[in-house]
Amino acid sequence: MSKVTKEQVLRSSGVNVLKCMRCGKCSATCPSYDEMEYHPHQFVYMVEKGDLEPLLNSDSIYKCLSCYACVERCPRGVEPAKVVEGIRNAVLRQSGMNHIKAENIPDMLDEDLPQQAIVSAFRKYKR
């Protein structure tokens, strides 16, 4: 993987991580908390510190549901989900880093699954 910089993540997400006052309300509200190795407040803090490697290599980036609960409830308007998305996109944009592959899709389908789920999963997991 080529080098991903803090500036790149900040620019892509449009988030000012310095607004965070470390209250942890994002992680308090996150529905995927238990599935994540790194939690929303850690994404914000680690990006602030420039400690990106662990995040780039963690499965946590695929656990965010993009449900906007942290965005809605953050008292400082930090928008942690955008940081998670920024990191995930930085990974997906590297060659060979697609998280799902088209050929695996048929195995995931059932007759009721709305294609909205497939489109969204492609958007979130694949370049």
Partner: peptide, 19 residues
């Protein structure tokens, strides 16, 4: 107003079930 799991059902059935 909490998430049902959304598109994560494609990738992590257990999480979608929980939510």
């Amino acid at each position: 107003n909490e998430c049902c799991g959304g598109y994560v059902t494609m990738e992590d059935k257990a999480l979608a079930k929980k939510k």
